[in-house]
Write a protein that binds this DNA or RNA. Structure first.
Length: 292
DNA sequence: AAAGCGGGCAACCGCGTATCA
DNA sequence: CTGATACGCGGTTGCCCGCTT
């Protein structure tokens, strides 16, 4: 993009305009159209001069943010899908609050949106569990409870839309191999969990590697293990159901103390954000001997 | 019906980094 | 090399809206 010569206002006049009253707060439809029109003609970048030239009484920063988070044609609106939730959890466990980096793996989603999702949904659960969101306890809860539930729900959604065959799926999770029985909660089929020397969870699934083509287009370079795995889930919206065995995440003999006492997280049973429903409560009770 | 409250989200702010003259 | 400017990121704020009392 040619950003040279963008300045349409001489410097002196520019500094004069710097002192004029800048608008703040919510954007109006007129402002949105101005910004869209200007970028359609001239492209983005050089946001300060863009703001001036477009006749917007906004800071360049404000224009940039409005464009990137709201007006861009490829921005995705609407609820965060289960696949996206799963991907966010996984990537956050890997990178922490690197929102923009995480957002790169969710095309159409902005760092702001992901950050808000994390703060409003995930941190809320941590608060309800009386856990620090960065605590091992909460991270374990996410990895061994929340993420498997998401996987199950994704599976269920996929099963509803297509007939799928079950397959043996192997995951590397704990220190001892565990074979899970055929169970409707686990998506059917025996699942073996084998150890990993560094506790770095990776999938060993014969069908996983076939899961697909570059689902992110040209946006990002591939990343290994889970991130790759879920990236395929997230964008294809037609994942190989064989890859989504819930047993890929499983209880590693952990003590989920914070879940044992009238956990509001578990009590929440009817919202789309809620991971556990009434059936899950029974499941958790059976699997973890919760006193609920 | 209305006041209070809390959640969700858009927008702002401050700071670090990159780029350019 | 250095200072100015632009950009990008993460944290925070404030408003709107729906729910509860």
């Amino acid at each position: 993009m040619d950003v040279q010569g963008r300045d349409c206002v001489p410097k002196a006049q520019s500094s004069e305009e710097d002192q004029m009253e800048l608008r703040r707060g919510p954007w109006t439809v007129e402002e949105d159209f101005k910004l869209i029109d200007y970028i359609a003609t001239h492209g983005e970048g050089r946001w300060n001069s863009l703001a001036r030239c477009a006749g917007l009484k906004r800071t360049g920063k404000s224009c940039r943010l409005r464009w990137l988070n709201y007006l861009r044609p490829d921005v995705r609106r609407g609820n965060i899908t289960l696949e996206e939730q799963l991907l966010i959890l996984e990537l956050h466990s890997r990178w922490g609050n690197r929102w923009s980096k995480i957002a790169q793996h969710l095309p159409g989603r902005t760092d702001n949106e992901i950050k808000n999702y994390w703060r409003t949904r995930v941190q809320k659960h941590a608060k309800q569990l009386k856990c620090d969101v960065n605590s091992k306890q909460f991270k374990d809860t996410m990895r061994y409870l929340w993420m498997p539930r998401l996987v199950e729900r994704i599976q269920a959604a996929n099963a509803a839309s297509s007939t799928s065959t079950t397959a043996v799926t192997t995951a590397v999770v704990g220190t001892e191999p565990m074979v899970f029985p055929d169970d409707h909660h686990l998506g059917g089929g025996a699942q073996q969990v084998t150890s990993s020397s560094n506790n770095n969870y990776t999938l060993e699934n014969s069908s996983t590697t076939a899961a697909s083509s570059d689902s992110f287009g040209t946006q990002v370079s591939p990343v290994s293990d889970f991130a790759d795995y879920y990236s395929n889930i997230s964008i294809n919206h037609n994942p190989n159901p064989n890859c989504l065995e819930a047993g890929n995440y499983y209880n590693n003999g952990l003590d989920f103390q914070c879940l044992e006492q009238n956990d509001p997280w578990l009590d929440a049973v009817d919202g789309s954000d809620n991971i556990f429903d009434a059936e899950d409560l029974y499941f958790l009770q059976q699997q973890f001997n919760f006193n609920m």
